[in-house]
Design a protein around this nucleic acid. Structure first.
Length: 498
RNA sequence: GGUCGGUUGGCCGAGUGGCUAGGCAGAGCUCUGCAAAAGCUUGUACGGCGGUUCGAAUCCGCCAUCGACCUCCA
């Protein structure tokens, strides 16, 4: 185990706390996954990226993490809380497919995007429809404890009753009285005793496709219930970290807490983490706003807002340049900046393995600076996953690496072990913790072979000082979107403009 | 209307009560047959008004402004 102290901002206590695992080295982490009724958009990706970093850093620090991220494939209603059509069912109707075909289609799409973004799969990815029994059992416990009631085959959580014994609304900073006043009048709520109550189980009508047998007749589970049931099943009644997007704080996470307490009498989670929103034109990117960009559109550049495609790693890097708790406003400029910045970091990574250590005159200032960087970068990451600061450290390291590489491809002013440590930390942080990987522009062997020949011929022309030939090759290729880059050591490479 | 969170140099974006992250752009330089690329160096800042303090971008108050949540959303 790494000895670094990890601090996490706990949204429940609203303060930064030292992370203490319940049962080290094991850590249980639950993150609310997508409702698979549509393509995941870029905003969703940000959230999963945030917790990818949490997962990766915990693992890097030596924790054994059981990471559970669900797939919501039932129970998430379209219109109002506890009313309206099931999202999956609606989409199924629109696309004329079986609901599970919708689920399958968008689950695969979701996984494709996660892979593209180099986001590590969770340890367990349970689906709501696969845990109906667990959900029914949990409802039974809640009823037995007196926090839920049945009306016409539906079960509702009694928020007022719950609030008499436990604070409802602490996570999201809500006061129950306000909720009772401000909650809009919605259709289909007449069954509830109070507006703030929410459904644990909804009775299904005849036409409803996705329904299951229960002690209360045919029906389906409420949206919030699945996360309570599945986190309990796989992580226990109390676990370490629960994550999700800010917009899930209320009502989803608030209800989750109430359900868990209602079922077993104590709070389920030690550290609540919420990642902030991704903005687009200063507006939250959301499905309901209709201003969402799909990850695939981002990569292909096929979107009115975009000037060209931006690679998955560029996106990943852009997100990591700001703290997960800050909003990000995406723009062409920020994408371009990220593209250049990422290149710098990745270039230095590739230089690193070409630099040889050599015995020489030690430069004390450089030594102490690098020792400082080597430790600071971990400290920064452990400070509530401050990837922005860690990236600043990487830039500082990269400046050293670049200088060594461009001077002699060797380093002699620091001791061998410190250089090796720098090498190890730089590559581990870049690859393992931040999850940045090299992207090949053209993954095409045929083109590679042809280009290598052209580059070689041009090189010959240059050696013979036939500048008109070498320039013609360069200019013609440029017009075709291929850029030749000459480096100092005489080697040339090519890159495809997109 | 209620609750919460922002407001940092040309742009993006971190941040601790005193030692002014970082990136992009700009400027200078190195390399280069030329160019591109790459690299090195470098300036400018903390929404407004008060207060606390020896000292505040950092703490407090007021104002302005933007946004989020209060309804499905990561």
């Amino acid at each position: 185990m790494n000895s670094a102290t990890l601090y996490i901002y706990n949204s429940y206590s609203k303060s930064k706390e030292v992370f203490k695992a319940i049962n080290p080295p094991f850590v249980g982490m639950y993150v609310c996954g997508p409702t698979v009724y549509n393509d995941v958009h870029l905003g969703n990706v940000r959230t999963f990226l945030t917790f990818d970093i949490v997962f990766r850093l915990l693992t890097y620090l030596g924790y054994k993490v059981r990471y559970v991220r669900n797939i919501t494939d039932v129970g998430h209603l379209v219109d109002d809380a506890d009313h309206g059509e099931d999202k999956i069912a609606k989409k199924a109707r629109l696309e004329q497919l079986e609901p599970m075909e919708i689920v399958q289609k968008y689950t695969i799409g979701f996984h494709d995007v996660m892979r593209l973004m180099n986001i590590i799969p969770p340890s367990i990815e349970p689906s709501a429809s696969g845990h109906i029994i667990e959900q029914i059992e949990m409802i039974n416990s809640i009823i037995a404890n007196g926090f839920a009631y049945e009306v016409n085959g539906s079960i509702y959580f009694d928020v007022l009753k719950f609030n008499e014994e436990y604070p409802y609304g602490k996570l999201s900073g809500r006061v129950l009285e306000d909720l009772l006043e401000t909650t809009r009048d919605l259709e289909g709520q007449e069954e509830k005793r109070n507006k703030a109550d929410f459904a644990l189980w909804k009775k299904a009508d005849k036409n409803h496709i996705m329904k299951w047998n229960s002690p209360w007749g045919e029906g389906f589970p409420g949206w919030h219930l699945e996360c309570s049931a599945m986190s309990t099943k796989y992580l226990g009644k109390v676990f370490d970290i629960h994550g999700g997007g800010m917009d899930l704080k209320f009502p989803h996470h608030e209800s989750e807490i109430a359900q868990n307490i209602g079922a077993c009498g104590h709070a389920p989670v030690n550290y609540w983490m919420h990642s902030n929103m991704l903005n687009f034109n200063s507006k939250k990117m959301s499905k309901s706003e209709g201003n969402s960009i799909l990850p695939m559109e981002m990569v292909s550049g096929e979107h009115p807002l975009l000037d060209k495609g931006y690679s998955p790693m560029t996106l990943r890097f852009l997100f990591l340049q700001s703290h997960y708790s800050s909003e990000i406003d995406i723009s062409i400029k920020s994408l371009q900046d990220a593209e250049k910045g990422l290149k710098k970091i990745m270039n230095a990574l590739s230089y690193l393995s070409k630099i040889k250590w050599k015995q020489g005159l030690i430069h004390p200032e450089t030594v102490s600076d690098i020792i400082k960087l080597n430790t600071e970068i971990i400290t920064h990451l452990c400070d509530d996953f401050n990837t922005a600061k860690a990236i600043a450290d990487l830039y500082a390291m990269a400046t050293y690496i670049n200088t060594w590489y461009h001077q002699k491809q060797e380093v002699s002013e620091i001791p061998k072990d410190i250089f090796e440590n720098l090498h190890k930390i730089y590559s581990e942080i870049v690859s393992d913790v931040l999850g940045l990987k090299e992207e090949k522009g053209a993954d095409n062997n045929t083109l590679d072979a042809a280009m290598n020949l052209i580059i070689e011929l041009r090189q010959q022309a240059r050696e013979e000082k036939k500048w008109s030939v070498s320039d013609q090759i360069r200019d013609t290729l440029k017009a075709a979107g291929i850029i030749i880059k000459d480096s100092k050591d005489g080697q040339s490479t090519y890159e495809i403009e997109n």
